[in-house]
Computed example of a mutant assay.
Amino acid sequence: MSTMKTRILALLTLVVMCTAGTFAQDRKILVAYFSWSGNTQHVAEYIARQTGGTLFRIEPVKPYPTEYTPCTEVAKAEKEQNARPAIKNRVADWDSYDTVFIGCPVWWWTAPMIINTFAESYNFKGKTVVPFCTYASTYRDETLAKIAELTPDARHLKGFGAVDRNTEGITEWLKEIKLAK
């Protein structure tokens, strides 16, 4: 009888070991991001490579100014007006995604208003949201919290903030939240 118990225990251990590393592979992952300068795009591409996720660039119908100061003025006005800038594209096959990374730069101490538009455009019930952002000096935590706040019907995993386009620490974070492929 003890030989039988040993075999069953060994089989159960094998099953657990075989399935433990497949969390990311069994999930369909979307990496949605808004990027103005290219920093957030760089980080999003890195996350997509590490997770096997599909990239989706959140693009405004009316592009932001390419020069820094005029862009900050538009971003500030949008924030003050609680604006919802229109997005020119939609996620194909939204319902097939289990996990959605949402990334953006920090603008005026929080997520850009286009992230509100994105979050309000889809049903996040039953999805897992993973926030990420790029920032120069501060307001990382506030921006990650804002993304979670915008998707209250989702389950949320620990977010990540990258300074500029630095990808250091991302692989370890993805392993910690069990989404690395």
Rank of each mutant, 00 (worst) to 15 (best):
V15F: 15
V130I: 15
V74K: 15
T138S: 12
K127Y: 01
A92Q: 12
A136Y: 08
T138L: 11
F23N: 15
S96K: 15
A44Y: 00
M17Y: 04
E59N: 04
E172R: 10
L12D: 14
M113P: 00
L174W: 10
L150T: 03
I47W: 07
L179N: 03
F118C: 05
R84I: 03
S37L: 00
V163M: 12
A145I: 06
Q41V: 01
T171C: 04
S35R: 05
F160R: 12
V129Y: 03
A10M: 09
T99Q: 09
W94T: 11
T51H: 01
T6D: 14
R49K: 14
S96D: 14
L14P: 11
F101R: 11
E172T: 11
Y64C: 06
Q25W: 14
A75K: 00
V163T: 12
P105R: 03
K5F: 15
Y33T: 04
P63G: 04
Y64Q: 06
W36S: 05
S35E: 00
A48K: 05
S96N: 14
A92D: 13
I147M: 13
W109C: 09
R49A: 12
I102R: 06
V106Y: 09
I8E: 13
I29V: 08
I58T: 04
W36I: 04
G103C: 04
S137R: 04
Y122R: 04
T22V: 10
A44N: 01
R7D: 10
A148D: 07
A162Q: 00
D141H: 06
A86C: 10
N116H: 15
W173R: 09
L14Y: 11
T13L: 13
W108R: 05
A20K: 02
T54R: 07
G53R: 00
T110R: 14
L12W: 13
V100Q: 07
Q25I: 08
F160C: 07
I29E: 00
K181Q: 13
P131M: 07
L12F: 14
R7V: 06
T143I: 06
D141S: 09
R27E: 13
F34V: 00
E80I: 10
G126A: 04
S2P: 08
Y68P: 03
V43E: 00
L179G: 00
A162Y: 00
I170H: 06
A83P: 12
E59V: 01
Y135F: 14
K127C: 02
I147V: 13
V31S: 00
S121E: 05
A111H: 07
E73D: 09
F132K: 07
E142G: 15
P105L: 02
R155G: 05
W94E: 03
T69G: 10
P70Q: 01
A145S: 13
V106Q: 07
W173Y: 08
Y64K: 03
K127E: 06
T167P: 05
V91M: 07
F160S: 01
W94F: 11
A77W: 06
D26T: 11
G52V: 02
E67L: 11
A32E: 04
K146R: 15
T99K: 02
E168R: 07
Q41N: 09
G52Q: 02
H42I: 05
R84S: 12
L144K: 09
D93C: 13
